[in-house]
């Protein structure tokens, strides 16, 4: 099992005590009913198309993943060794639930699925991702996305 609660004591504490950005307040955007929303997935698992630029230490940029990607072309170059990769080896949906989101669209639970989805690499300090988010948000707007489902690793 790869749970933080099962890390050795000193490593667990260091992991939990990691530096994090602090925010004075939390934004909260209300929106349409779920059945009318257009949803994009954003992962921090260091996922990308095979052949796309690899993630490396402190990569703050993102990779674009088309919603209709053949799952054989979806790979992971996250630098950490401290999380389970067998799940992703067996089924991409355990990390990036493309098929599940498609099913929720088909049953009318959500309105539609974005054309483009994204991945960052979560070992990077979040402040280094912030500049890329502005570009990413422009793409989301052009794709008429109003809702993002964030998928950690």
């Amino acid at each position: 099992m790869v749970k933080v609660s099962e890390f050795p004591d000193d490593e667990r504490q260091a992991y939990l005590d990691r530096d994090m950005p602090s925010f004075d307040e939390t934004p909260f955007v209300k929106g349409k009913p779920l059945s009318e929303r257009r949803v994009a997935l954003i992962s921090t698992a260091g996922l990308h198309r095979r052949g796309d630029r690899l993630f490396t230490e402190e990569s703050g940029d993102y990779r674009i993943i088309p919603g209709d990607i053949d799952e054989a072309d979806l790979v992971m170059s996250h630098v950490s060794t401290n999380f389970d990769r067998i799940g992703f080896m067996q089924d991409v949906n355990v990390a990036m639930p493309f098929d599940r989101l498609r099913e929720l669209v088909d049953e009318g639970f959500v309105g539609s699925m974005a054309d483009y989805h994204f991945s960052f690499m979560g070992a990077t300090p979040p402040e280094k991702m912030a500049p890329s988010v502005r570009d990413l948000v422009d793409i989301l707007r052009k794709d008429e996305v109003d809702t993002v489902m964030l998928c950690p690793v």
Partner: peptide, 29 residues
């Protein structure tokens, strides 16, 4: 943190959290 960055641009976010302690510190939407 990504949730903060994206939501303050006007797009709603939701997420799964695997490390509750981190999520409590960052306090996403």
């Amino acid at each position: 943190a990504l949730a903060h960055y994206i939501e303050r641009e006007g797009i709603s976010t939701t997420q799964v959290s695997l490390v509750k302690e981190h999520t409590l510190k960052i306090n996403p939407p």
